[in-house]
Amino acid sequence: MQPEPDVASPVSADPELADLAWRVREGVGRLNWRMRAERDPNGPGPAVLAVLSRLYRAGTHTPTELAEAERLQPQSLTRILAWVTERGLVTRSPDPEDGRRSLVSITPDGLAVLREYSVRRERWLAGAIEATLSPTERQLLKLASDLMLRVADA
């Protein structure tokens, strides 16, 4: 059986650029998947970690803003907020501009949970880099990571 022809428009007229885009996407995706596997199976799930990370990086949000930013259904976010509030990982306070809304902020305990998750992933990554890359390859990876940050910020 013949595979379906690719009907999507080409990524780039430059085949080398198209190949590079694929390699970067594939590498980032696989690395992200592998690093997520490093979370504690008894700890918070990916959606909880995403909410804590959003609150850490972007500051206080209303529940509606959080749901939109994380592309969560309001019902799912309600369960997540109940779970993290019960464990003291976030606080909810009335919005001074609109008392019908609440503001959600990460707590020091929430930061500790997030940091523990980050340290676990970084520890795995440092070990994988040490075990698989030569010193020269490590320098190349450092350069590549700086370039990826520039591209991400573009």
Rank of each mutant, 00 (worst) to 15 (best):
L143T: 09
V104L: 06
L77K: 02
E122T: 12
L103F: 04
I129P: 02
T107I: 05
R138T: 07
E70K: 13
A69H: 10
D109R: 14
Q139P: 00
S105P: 03
L114H: 10
L140Q: 12
L133A: 07
T136N: 05
D109N: 09
A112S: 14
A144R: 06
T78G: 06
T78N: 09
R101I: 08
S145E: 12
G110N: 11
A112T: 10
R120D: 15
L143M: 04
R87D: 01
S118D: 15
L133W: 08
S76G: 08
P108T: 11
D109G: 02
R100D: 15
R87L: 03
W124H: 13
L103R: 15
S102V: 13
S118N: 14
Q75L: 10
G88S: 05
I80R: 10
L143F: 03
I80D: 06
V119F: 15
V113F: 12
S105H: 05
R120N: 12
T107Q: 07
L141A: 11
Q73M: 04
D109K: 11
R79C: 00
W83H: 08
A69E: 14
I106L: 08
T136A: 13
R123V: 15
P108L: 10
P96K: 05
L81G: 02
P108R: 15
L125R: 10
T132D: 13
A131Y: 04
E86M: 01
V104R: 03
